[in-house]
């Protein structure tokens, strides 16, 4: 599955006037891609995610799935192509509603027409994929679980639809460090499967750097920067103008470079930082 947005613009209507949110956006996601979309609050990240998931329709430009221009989900005579695009919203645990964890996870695939043992298999696989034991937890009420577990159940509800592209909007926001690591682990193992693509909306630059291959930085509804995490971090201080705060080690490198040290601002892992500093001090 390939999602492509061409010259897409979006605006909300406030009263009678349009309030532009996104302007002339071009994005493409193909199997094997891991795209991070980042930017400050109000930059249009979440809106772009919803456009890519077919949950909003652009006011201008085209949304193309596997080469075919399409309308949004449930609009016109849209076929099931959107079902291959899974979307995990911010705080997805808020969408849980069923009496048991298994029923909730079954909601999506059930809507796709799966029944019986096939449905059960999907539910169990999805729960295992998020690190939960279907036997142990499947019959529990989702509302009795911890916050981190609820979030993973909600993600399982999307994974159970067997998407090819998984779009996640701030999937780790509000979790404690252990919960964050678990959710990131779920995303990594999804991405490792063949033919899958991930779109991660995140303002956490450490996460973006550790996970993504490509990064889009949105600023005031436009694509301000685009490239690999390293290419983005190379911008150094300029990132601040876009409301981004680089990971601490990158900030350290930038600070040292600003003082005149011959180190690269593209660094974000501990090993790289250590090597760069030792090389500089040793010289």
């Amino acid at each position: 599955m390939e999602i492509s947005l061409r010259e897409v613009s979006f605006a909300y209507k406030v009263g009678d006037r349009p309030l532009p949110v996104l302007e002339s956006i071009n994005v493409r996601v193909a199997p094997g891609d891991f795209l991070a979309i980042t930017g400050s609050g109000g930059s249009g990240k979440s809106t772009l995610a919803m456009l890519m998931a077919g949950l909003l329709e652009p006011v201008a430009g085209r949304v193309i799935l596997d080469g075919k221009p399409v309308r949004g989900r449930g609009k016109g005579k849209t076929h099931s192509a959107w079902h291959k695009v899974g979307m995990v919203f911010q705080q997805p645990e808020q969408q849980l509603f069923a009496e048991t964890v298994a029923d909730d996870v079954a909601f999506g695939p059930g809507n796709l027409g799966f029944t019986g043992s096939e449905l059960e298999t999907r539910v169990e696989e999805a729960l295992r994929a998020v690190g939960l034991d279907p036997q142990k937890i499947g019959g529990h009420s989702p509302f009795r679980l911890s916050g981190g577990q609820q979030r993973r159940v909600a993600i399982a509800g999307v994974l159970a639809m067997d998407p090819e592209v998984l779009i996640l909007d701030e999937p780790t926001a509000g979790l404690d460090p252990a919960g964050r690591e678990q959710v990131l682990g779920v995303i990594r193992s999804f991405y490792r499967r063949p033919g899958k693509a991930v779109v991660l909306i995140s303002h956490n630059m450490a996460e973006v750097a550790a996970m993504a291959r490509q990064v889009i930085v949105l600023y005031q509804g436009r694509v301000a920067l685009q490239g690999t995490p390293r290419e983005i971090f190379r911008q150094g201080e300029a990132l601040k103008t876009y409301g981004l705060i680089p990971p601490p080690l990158t900030r350290l490198m930038q600070e040292l470079q600003r003082r005149g040290a011959p180190v690269s601002p593209e660094i974000f892992t501990l090993a790289e930082a250590r090597a760069a500093i030792l090389a500089w001090l040793g010289a």
């Binding site: 460090p177 252990a178 990971p247 601490p248 080690l249 350290l252 501990l270 930082a273 250590r274 500093i277």
Partner: peptide, 13 residues
Amino acid sequence: GLKAPAIVALGKS
């Protein structure tokens, strides 16, 4: 379930 901040880990290393 906590980890020292990256700067502390770097310092140690």
